[in-house]
Simulated scan of single mutants.
Amino acid sequence: MSDTQRLWNDYAACWSADPADRLGALGAVAVDEVAYRDPGTEVGSLTELASYMAGFAQAFPGHRFRIGEVLEHHEDGRLADITGFFLPA
């Protein structure tokens, strides 16, 4: 598995991570001022993204994420700007 694939797999796992571990796991894959947006939200920090992920996980228990396509990727080994779209499995 390439480093880029590993990075995106680790990022996807953050969405369903244990709440106590989510912020630390997210910090390993994204910069502190990560910009994240999807059709439902826009956030600008690890803490805000971890909180959004927690709410999403609570609303959809047992669901997991899979990254279908990456158009661009990281800087300095971590994600800095993410745009997400959700499609049915």
Rank of each mutant, 00 (worst) to 15 (best):
A54F: 00
Q58T: 12
F56T: 06
A57T: 09
G44S: 13
S51M: 14
A59E: 13
P61M: 04
Y52S: 01
E42A: 13
P61H: 00
S45L: 08
G44H: 13
L46R: 12
F60T: 05
A59D: 14
V43E: 06
M53W: 01
S45V: 09
G55H: 05
A57Y: 03
S45D: 08
D38A: 12
G68A: 12
S51L: 13
A54Q: 04
R64P: 03
E48G: 05
A50E: 07
F65Y: 06
F60A: 02
G44D: 12
R37Q: 15
P39N: 09
H63Y: 09
F56R: 11
A50Q: 04
A50M: 02
E69N: 14
R37T: 15
P39L: 08
G62W: 04
G55Y: 02
F65P: 03
I67N: 06
R64S: 12
Y52C: 01
T41V: 15
A57Q: 12
A57D: 14
A57F: 04
T41W: 07
D38W: 10
S51V: 14
Y52H: 02
F56V: 06
V70W: 00
A59H: 07
D38Q: 13
G40Q: 14
G55F: 02
R66E: 12
M53L: 08
H63C: 05
Q58W: 01
E69D: 13
I67S: 03
E42P: 01
P39D: 08
H63N: 06
G62M: 02
